[in-house]
Design a binder for these strands. Structure first.
Length: 792
DNA sequence: AGCACGCCGACT
DNA sequence: GTCGGCGTGCTC
């Protein structure tokens, strides 16, 4: 028997299967998907079994050394998926496997010395070794020198230990030996020991902790162990991040007409095991989640499993609570806040079938379910579903593949669907389900757009328009709550000299430095360059060099200056980076410890507090002005989302949008809560500009420290593409990127636009291979982004 | 990627 | 003469 193995070496040249002999003693337990340790050239590394072949290989092969786990980490579906991703995403197989699996299973390598002949060394040296082995990295130079002659003599040998990053946590437990209970009980003299034995006979395995809780001390247990009536074993212990939380049981809610229709359609597909994609277009508060919950319940009743993806920032405790309340401990939750071990435990709960529902962020799309019956992607328009670094993938694409593989329905849910999805629904590729009314019958909040140019003309140079100022004061007085939203992008603080206009730039990148008040430093967000804030202008020596742009910190200060009785909770990257801080701040706001919540993107979702009656968007247009074809769509989505935060309870909600472009269609349609209006107009621009969903895009970015090199290669890339691709496709560029230099690398881009391009993958694979060699030789960098979320 | 092999320069 | 620089090539 031999096995085809993907080896844990992240390099293009070994991105293929290597065949190994399966030793006879492993043949019976060897399974596809297992991790193994194999010899690879002169080294020893971890690998994944992709295929097992039950006959001899033409060549003599090296043997697999040992297996890493008894239960395969990968199932057949994930192996097939990784194969598909390798070709369609132009990625290395091992890189794909690495993102699919929890980080904890990744191999860790330690060089060790093994003491082969203990009697040959001095006592002093012998002390160094525990169980006849010692890690080389733990030895000092002196110790290494002392060991050297023995290594040469073969008394001590060098070896590599392959282990996984994180061990499975175990607990000590006790179980009965294979004994006759009656005779054992008769022979025992201690009542405590008899009782203990009986309890074990009754309940099977008990942990030491459980025994202690029932008043059986270690002495009692040890007595029984000594008599060989029971034995100690290690059992797997799962870290449950929610173990100390009580969840209330929650039952089904009655569905309203539109919800019921949507539910009926989906559960029809679930029952039929049909791979159909539904686009659930439901406005905020229309009760999408209840539809999800009930369809998931059906899937579980069907004996199948269900996967639900939500954006990381929407994965709030409230959201988790709702799932736990409905499905109890059948739910696994995966988000970035988990430790490596916790994440691994959740993963294993799914793999072992203990968890049958998974709620998680992007990477949960790889959850190792068997028998998937339903996949849901909530807020499907969210850009965070696309992994922006290598290997780039979109969770939606992966979900589609898995839906097809498992022959199960996929639900895409959103209040503001991406244009791509809505267009497919219009064409009938997806089935459109609409929830147009709020489930709770509360009115949609009223929205006002304030023209900041008028404010400026009227002499108001502050961040707050007259209307917003009055509204805030009013709510503070009434004891109601306010959410203020600040678009972070484009509003970082930077320095500007009032005399000469100089802006300090990063020496390594073509971008201005961001001012950080806390440390009084200037930082580059792209290369990490840091410098102290200059006292005078480096260009003209003027003292009038000041911070420009408004960050959340600055706005917080302004609010306190501007409004009496304001109490602000600020949520941004600075205040929420600590683990659990996000949750704590929201709890404080819910408990009315503050009346104003000020934040960035992250407050646009998931908060659902009854007392919020005013939402203010301080700067609606910063996003609008980004040089990206999706900027209108993003703005529309964000504004609609933010507006949905107001007036959820019996108090009427009001939204004020401040902007310098009040007549812009994205803002106007958001104001009128008119998705289809926006969709139609935006589609028109996309058609004219040959952008998605009319055309597919590929973005190639290439960079090198030498500009000449980049220009030269850009011609080659351009030519290659023109040569390979059909005439109906467009190859645009090469042109300098929006940020033309990062970390001293000059960056250029080429954009491909196409409707149908059979040769595309072949051409891209060719370029990827060709430039891989160039990268190895002279650090020329090419990155390929298929279906990019951003063109910058 | 990592490791060995191999072929040239500056040192005890 | 040899230690060590890193270019080249291979890994079932």
């Amino acid at each position: 028997m031999y096995a085809s193995v993907v080896v844990d070496v992240n390099a293009k040249r070994v991105d293929k299967l290597f065949d190994y002999e399966v030793p006879a003693e492993l043949a019976s337990i060897m399974k596809v998907g297992m991790r193994v340790v194999v010899p690879f050239g002169p080294r020893k590394i971890q690998g994944y079994i992709i295929e097992l072949v039950d006959r001899n290989h033409e060549k003599a092969l090296k043997p697999i050394l040992h297996i890493q786990d008894m239960t395969p980490e990968l199932n057949t579906e994930l192996i097939r998926l990784s194969e598909w991703m390798q070709t369609t995403h132009i990625a290395k197989r091992i890189a794909v496997l690495d993102i699919m699996l929890p980080r904890a299973v990744k191999g860790k390598y330690h060089k060790v010395y093994r003491l082969e002949e203990p009697e040959e060394v001095s006592d002093e040296l012998y002390q160094l070794f525990s169980q006849n082995r010692v890690r080389i990295s733990s030895l000092s130079a002196d110790q290494l020198a002392a060991l050297k002659p023995y290594v040469e003599a073969g008394v001590i040998t060098e070896d590599v230990e392959v282990r996984q990053q994180q061990k499975v946590k175990t607990q000590k437990a006790v179980e009965l030996c294979d004994i006759n209970l009656d005779t054992a009980l008769e022979a025992l003299r201690s009542d405590k020991q008899k009782a203990c034995l009986l309890m074990l006979a009754d309940e099977g395995v008990l942990t030491l902790k459980e025994l202690k809780e029932r008043d059986f001390s270690a002495a009692v247990v040890n007595g029984l162990v000594k008599k060989e009536l029971v034995r100690k074993i290690d059992i797997e212990d799962t870290r449950d991040p929610y173990q100390h939380r009580e969840f209330l049981q929650d039952g089904k809610k009655v569905l309203r007409d539109e919800q019921q229709t949507a539910y009926d359609e989906i559960s029809g597909a679930v029952a039929a095991g049909k791979n159909e994609v539904f686009l659930l277009h439901g406005i905020t508060g229309s009760g999408k989640t209840e539809v999800y919950l009930q369809t998931i319940a059906d899937v579980l009743d069907n004996g199948q499993t269900a996967l639900m993806l939500v954006p990381e920032i929407a994965l709030t405790p409230q959201m988790v609570e709702r799932f736990k309340a409905r499905f109890g401990d059948r739910v696994a939750v995966m988000h970035s806040g988990l430790s490596m071990g916790e994440r691994y435990d959740e993963w294993r709960k799914i793999r072992k079938g203990e968890a049958r529902v998974c709620v998680g962020a992007r990477s949960s799309v790889f959850a190792p379910f068997e028998n998937l019956g339903l996949i849901i992607i909530d807020e499907e328009h969210e850009a965070s579903y696309k992994q922006e670094d290598y290997p780039r993938y979109h969770a939606r694409d992966i979900a589609m593949w898995r839906g097809e593989y498992n022959s199960c329905p996929v639900i895409l849910g959103s209040a503001t669907p991406s244009l791509e999805s809505y267009a497919r629904a219009e064409k009938g590729v997806y089935r459109l389900l609409t929830l147009s009314r709020r489930a709770n019958q509360f009115p949609v909040p009223s929205v006002n757009v304030v023209n900041m140019r008028d404010e400026l003309a009227a002499g108001n140079r502050s961040m707050f328009s007259a209307e917003l100022t009055q509204a805030i004061n009013d709510r503070i007085q009434k004891g109601e709550q306010i959410v203020l939203f600040l678009n972070r992008r484009g509003h970082a603080q930077f320095l500007l000299c009032r005399d000469c206009g100089h802006v300090p730039n990063c020496p390594n990148c073509d971008i201005s430095l961001t001012y950080h008040k806390v440390t009084d430093e200037l930082k580059c967000h792209y290369c990490g360059h840091k410098e102290y804030k200059p006292v005078t202008c480096p260009n003209c020596d003027s003292e009038h060099i000041r911070e420009m742009g408004v960050g959340t910190q600055k706005v917080e200060e302004l609010i306190y200056q501007h409004f009496d009785g304001a109490k602000v909770i600020r949520m941004d990257n600075d205040t929420t980076s600590r683990k659990g801080a996000h949750e704590q701040l929201l709890d404080k706001f819910r408990d009315q410890e503050a009346n104003i919540l000020l934040g960035t993107q992250m407050i646009a979702k998931g908060l659902d507090f009854p007392n919020i009656t005013l939402v203010g968007v301080l700067n609606a247009d910063t996003m609008l002005n980004l040089p990206d074809f999706r900027s209108s769509e993003r703005t529309f989505q964000l504004l609609t989302q933010v507006a949905g935060r107001a007036g959820r309870a019996d108090k009427e909600g009001h939204v004020i949008i401040q902007t310098y472009n009040p007549e812009h269609y994205a803002i106007q349609y958001a104001k009128n809560n008119d998705y289809t209006g926006f969709y139609k107009e935006e589609m028109n621009y996309r058609r004219i500009g040959k952008y998605p969903p009319y055309y597919y895009l590929v973005n190639l970015i290439f960079s090198h420290t030498d500009m000449k090199e980049v220009l030269l290669e850009s011609k080659h890339i351009h030519q290659t593409l023109l040569h390979h691709l059909s005439p109906s496709s467009y190859v645009l560029g090469p042109a300098p990127c929006a940020i033309a230099r990062i970390n001293n690398q000059y960056r250029f881009q080429i954009i491909i636009k196409f409707k149908s391009e059979p040769e595309l993958l072949q051409a891209l694979t060719y370029l990827d291979d060709y430039y891989y060699e160039k990268f190895v030789k002279n650090k020329f960098n090419l990155s390929i982004d298929i279906n990019p979320q951003m063109l910058m």
